[in-house]
């Protein structure tokens, strides 16, 4: 085979690989285009501000305000982070710094399994055990921000643990050795040297956990109560943005359907922003 032909083939292969690599980009663009195409005319007609700051959601009467769901998503996510992040970071420290080999080898599959359990199964468990627990202890129906936060806290654990552990492990060994050589205890070293060194990785971990919590649907839908009202306490039911779509898409048409796509736009934009933040953090680490 001639050299020129061979070079031709190589060139062709490289370009076709590039083509398949672009498929991912294409899908992201298609998602953006289609959600915007369906949702944007509605937003233009109804007004973005009245959509986002409207307090009443009543599609049958032409009221499409998602403020209660934005607040609901916010509370549930913050709740999940408050419960989940300390536990996850502690587990990451355990895995990266403290656990002897055999113990870590036992612990890791547990985290993997936690990551693999289908979200509906979590929801089912939450519905019976967590909601039941809250119901019997606080004298309320139990479907609440608290239940959803606990559920999500468990679900974001694997994400936050894995990325935090990587971040902690990526801190150069010399830093640790230097600190120990100066007479610092192991905990002092972790606190003043390792954790600050792993800071941007830890922050990425939290953001990614946050993204997961914001985007979660099936587990939350079964425990949150789904009322489209602004909650006033942790034990009040909420509806998140994702729930809104999943719950009503089945029978929506016309403006109602478009308003759900508009809800999707809000979610999509939120996630893109979070993702851009994480990418920027990552770049800062590598540079």
């Amino acid at each position: 085979m001639g050299d020129a032909v061979r070079r031709r083939i190589e060139w062709l292969i490289e370009k076709s690989l590039l083509l398949s690599a672009i498929v991912g980009t294409l899908i992201v663009m298609l998602i953006a285009v289609f959600t915007f195409l369906e949702g944007f005319p509605f937003l233009a007609k109804y007004g973005i501000t009245s959509f986002i700051t409207g307090k009443v959601w009543d599609p049958a009467y032409g009221e499409f305000g998602i403020l209660s769901m934005i607040i609901g998503t916010f509370y549930v996510t913050i709740g999940a982070l408050i419960i989940g992040v300390p536990i996850a970071v502690a587990c990451a420290i355990f895995l990266a710094e403290m656990a002897p080999q055999p113990l870590a080898r036992l612990f890791r599959p547990i985290i993997e399994l936690l990551a693999g359990i289908p979200t509906v199964v979590y929801g089912f468990f939450g519905l019976i055990v967590i909601v039941g627990f809250i119901k019997s202890h606080f004298d309320v129906p139990g479907f609440s921000i608290l239940a959803a936060s606990i559920m999500l806290a468990i679900m974001i654990l694997p994400t936050v643990i894995n990325i935090s552990e990587d971040a902690i492990r990526a801190v150069p060994k010399q830093y640790k050795e230097g600190s120990l050589a100066l007479g610092a205890t192991h905990w002092q070293t972790i606190r003043y040297v390792i954790l600050p060194g792993a800071r941007s990785g830890l922050i990425s971990a939290i953001f990614l956990g946050m993204g997961r919590a914001i985007g979660e649907t099936m587990a939350v839908i079964m425990v949150a109560g789904n009322t489209a009202l602004i909650p006033t306490s942790m034990l009040d039911p909420v509806r998140t943005l994702t729930i809104n779509i999943a719950l009503e898409m089945g029978y929506a048409y016309g403006d109602h359907s478009s308003s759900l796509f508009a809800t999707g736009i809000v979610l999509f934009v939120l996630i893109i922003c979070l993702n851009a933040l994480v990418t920027r953090l990552k770049r800062r680490v590598t540079e």
């Binding site: 992201v28 959600t35 990614l208 914001i214 985007g215 999707g264 999509f268 996630i271």
Partner: peptide, 12 residues
């Protein structure tokens, strides 16, 4: 793509 919520995939 990894971060897009599954319900948004559903909508799409």
């Amino acid at each position: 793509l990894a971060g897009v919520p599954s319900i948004v995939f559903g909508l799409f």
